[in-house]
Amino acid sequence: MRPRSLLFWAGVATMCAWVLVPIWLIAAGAIGGRQGVFLWPKSMLPPEFTFSALAVFLRIEGVGKALWNSVAAAAMTMAFATLLGTPAGYALARFSFRGQNAYRLLILLTRAFPIAILALPLTVAFINWGLYDTTLGVALVHTALALPFAALVTSSLFVGIPRELEEAAWIFGCTRLQAFVKIVLPLALPGIAATGLFAFVISWNEVFAASVLTVRERTLTAYLLTVLSESPLHFRFAGGLVLILPSVVFIFAVRRYLFAMWGIANR
């Protein structure tokens, strides 16, 4: 093997290990039984192979409801972020307006604002509006977190679609809206879908806002944080695995579109 390709494969191996080893350790903790967790040094295969921890975990009071809340909040986040972010991205891509660059920066700046500072005022506001301790409230905060990504990613999608395609549609009888629906949307749809799934994952993984803004209607992450801090270690691993798996599966499912929208050649 030539040194260059050796270096390349070493890099690939490091990247894979970086991602896969922690996931494997969590999975091993979850299915390795009570002894497996405390075993040191760790063996490649866990000493036993049991789903009992997972089963017990899923039967814990409230996990089912939290799971449902998480799915609902993530689905709403996906819908809101896509429906609000796509038009914003289109405007950024197609229209030149005064303060366009400032607007672009402003979108990113919403992410620079630490949510910890917003927690208290948000809680007060949500109580006043009747949004406190509701899944909708959580979804709204998560939408605010996912929206910058949605707007910027869809904007780069639309930039990649030649303006002439739309102009041709106008010439041949389309209104602006018709041209968007008939020409631009079908071409951008895979990317928009990926953006939506990305928003789903952001919401699914978010724990801070969900913990602060809910008491009974917890999402899975927030629920696990409170419940599992008192549980035996292998239950915590089981909870962790349940949390990780959906995101990993999602990202894996849409990886082609993620590559496409980040400008990496689509293979």
Binding site: E164, L165, E167, W170, F172
Partner: peptide, 18 residues
Amino acid sequence: PPRERKLAMVFQNYAVFP
């Protein structure tokens, strides 16, 4: 608007709908 002008156009980069 363009759609009411009753004309057709051919673009430099073709602009055929992919």
